[in-house]
Structures are given as C-alpha cells and as structure tokens.
C-alpha cells in the first residue's frame, strides 16, 4: 500500500502562520528535516493527524537566509531547529530555547554543512590474511 503524502511548498514569510494553522487543527509535529542540495536547501516540516501525513517544504537559496522559528507554536520544534542549526549551520531566528550551537556535540562544527562530491574510500588498515587449507599467506 502506498500511503498518500501531501507536499506543499511555502516561503519563509508564511511559515509561522501555516504552522499555527496546523497547531490549531491539532496536528502533531512529526519532524523537521533539512536537506542540503548543491543548489538549494530544503527544510521539510512534517505533520500528522490520524495517519494523514502533510508536509510543508521551505526552499532556501543558501544558508545565509534567515528562517523564522516555529518553536513558539510547537514547543518541541526547538529540538529539531537546534539540531538543524548545529548540523547544517542554518540561521534560525527566535528559537524559544536557543542552545547557540551547543545542543549537538559534534567533533566538527556544522558537520553536514558541506556537500562534497563522492570520494573513493581509502583502506587504512593492513588487511589480515585469513586463508584456509592449501593457500599460503602472502
């Protein structure tokens, strides 16, 4: 069975109003997820009510654009927004509880902010020979 998933594209200025509508209709905030693409950044706001899945998509040109926070509407959004800020380095303004980059303790700051081309993995360790019967180790 393929479940129906609605996808609506919105712009930053109407975000908070749209999300407030969802709050009034008692939708549950399922997740906020960021996708970094070579030419743009997408943020997906997913909502659910009685297994009805609705998705708002915010498209940003680059990571300098200010994104309004929806944590004043959905309190739990602050965790997703801090995560997005800490991993992608996006500029989200007005989070109710702004950790300012200390929510997610990663070794590299803004670990997901870059979008490098795929590289061939390098084998660092020397392999160990595991040969049975006749074979001779190197």
């Amino acid at each position: 069975m393929i479940e129906e998933q609605k996808l609506i594209e919105i712009i930053p200025s109407e975000l908070v109003a749209k999300v407030r509508d969802m709050f009034v209709e008692q939708y549950r905030l399922v997740q906020i997820g960021c996708t970094k693409l070579p030419d743009r950044i997408e943020i997906n706001y997913s909502f659910d009510k009685n297994y009805q899945f609705i998705n708002y998509r915010l498209i940003l040109a680059n990571d300098k654009v200010e994104v309004p926070s929806v944590s004043s509407v959905y309190w739990n959004a602050l965790f997703y927004e801090n995560e997005i800020h800490d991993l992608f380095g996006l500029n989200i303004v007005g989070i109710v509880l702004d950790f300012k980059g200390t929510f997610y303790e990663t070794k590299e700051k803004y670990a997901f902010a870059t979008c490098p081309p795929p590289i061939e993995p390098v084998i660092k360790t020397t392999p160990v020979v595991n040969i049975k019967e006749k074979g001779k180790p190197q």
Partner: peptide, 19 residues
C-alpha cells in the same frame, strides 16, 4: 566496508577481520 582486498596479478586474497 571494503574489508576484502584482492590482487589479481599477485593472486592474493586478504580480509581485514576487524573491518
């Protein structure tokens, strides 16, 4: 996980059991 290294020329086959 790229644990296996095979060399066609030298005819060796090796596995890194930790990977």
């Amino acid at each position: 996980t790229d644990a296996i290294v095979v060399d066609r020329e030298k005819k060796t086959w090796a596995i890194d059991s930790m990977r």
